[in-house]
């Protein structure tokens, strides 16, 4: 195709788009909805993934030892744990340290401080805080502990694996429902766009029949309609970008995120803090090109696929 033909095709595409006025607008709207869904899916993926990482970094297995557990046994267990490939870091908190931390934390609480003094002895156990290299290894580590001979000095093993499983399943169900609605919307968008193109073809049927008469090739006849689909996808992706940006802009400090149930869990503090700050607005701007290209590609694919199907059908039916 020569440059002049490309120019003609694009011009004719704009004419076809323009001629169908409101129908084109309606198609763009339904595409915007679809692309908005694609964008939302993308963002929620980013947010949920970063939340999961945050939560994972806070995961550990903690082991409380019996009060009478000999320190050398505990240190021996520490050494053998550290030689383990799955184990990242073992933090040993001795009974004295535990008491010190406890006192430090409750230093303003006279009642607790007083009763501690009254007991006279240290009621706190020594403990381990074990970080795994990979969150999936926590299971292995705790089953190692349970089967080890040193199990007798252990009072209690506390894991938060169930929490991470819950988060994981939440993420995957969020992804599934997001993906499902995206697919459903895409199908609706393709159907609507398909019918718009059919209408555009119908409006241009005289021109098409004359084109055929004078021997225009099929691709020549189809190209302007594919351009219509591309224009629709282009406009829709720009609109979707703006719509995605608006709530982020009103949401500088991630207020929205606090509505997502897993975030308060992370620390009980404010959502943005617990997230370690994947500020979505910043994210939006620093990945602007990528997100735009993602939506643009989705929009153009939606639009042009519809056109290709519609024109193919028409050209098959009308010889």
């Amino acid at each position: 195709m020569s440059l002049i033909q490309v120019k003609r095709t694009i011009r004719q595409g704009f004419i076809n788009f323009w001629r169908n006025g409101w129908v084109s607008v309606a198609t763009v709207l339904i595409m915007v909805l679809t692309l908005f869904m694609v964008g939302t899916l993308f963002f929620s993926n980013v947010v949920l993934t970063s939340a999961l990482q945050q939560v994972e970094s806070k995961l550990d297995v903690s082991v409380d030892f019996k009060l009478d557990a000999p320190e050398e046994d505990i240190l021996a267990l520490k050494t053998s744990l550290e030689s383990f490939g799955e184990v990242g870091k073992v933090e040993y908190i001795s009974r004295d340290e535990a008491l010190e931390r406890f006192r430090e934390r409750y230093k303003d609480n006279a009642l607790i401080t007083q009763s501690l003094d009254e007991i006279g002895t240290n009621p706190l156990p020594a403990s381990f805080n074990i970080k795994a290299k990979d969150p999936e290894n926590y299971g292995t580590i705790s089953s190692f502990l349970k089967n080890d001979s040193s199990f007798q000095i252990i009072d209690e093993i506390r894991e938060n694996q169930p929490t991470i499983d819950a988060i994981n399943s939440m993420i995957s169900s969020a992804r599934t429902s997001g993906l499902t609605s995206t697919i459903v919307l895409s199908i609706i968008a393709v159907l609507v766009a398909f019918n718009t193109i059919r209408l555009a073809i119908y409006t241009s049927r005289d021109e098409i029949s004359i084109m055929r008469l004078v021997g225009a090739s099929h691709s020549y006849i189809r190209a302007p309609f594919v351009v219509v689909g591309i224009i629709q996808g282009f406009l829709a992706s720009i609109a979707a970008m703006v719509i995605l940006w608006l709530p982020l802009w009103f949401n500088h400090d991630n207020v929205l995120l606090s509505f997502v149930p897993i975030f308060p869990f992370a620390n009980g503090s404010s959502a943005s803090e617990s997230l370690g700050g994947p500020n979505l607005l910043n994210y939006y701007f620093s990945n602007f090109i990528f997100i735009f290209l993602l939506l643009l590609a989705s929009g153009i694919i939606l639009g042009s696929i519809s056109s290709i199907i519609a024109t193919r059908r028409y050209l098959k039916e009308h010889k």
Binding site: L213, V214, G215
Partner: peptide, 14 residues
Amino acid sequence: RNADLPKVRRRMGV
């Protein structure tokens, strides 16, 4: 073939 028809039709004026 359907796709070659346009070329042939260019040789016929209607």
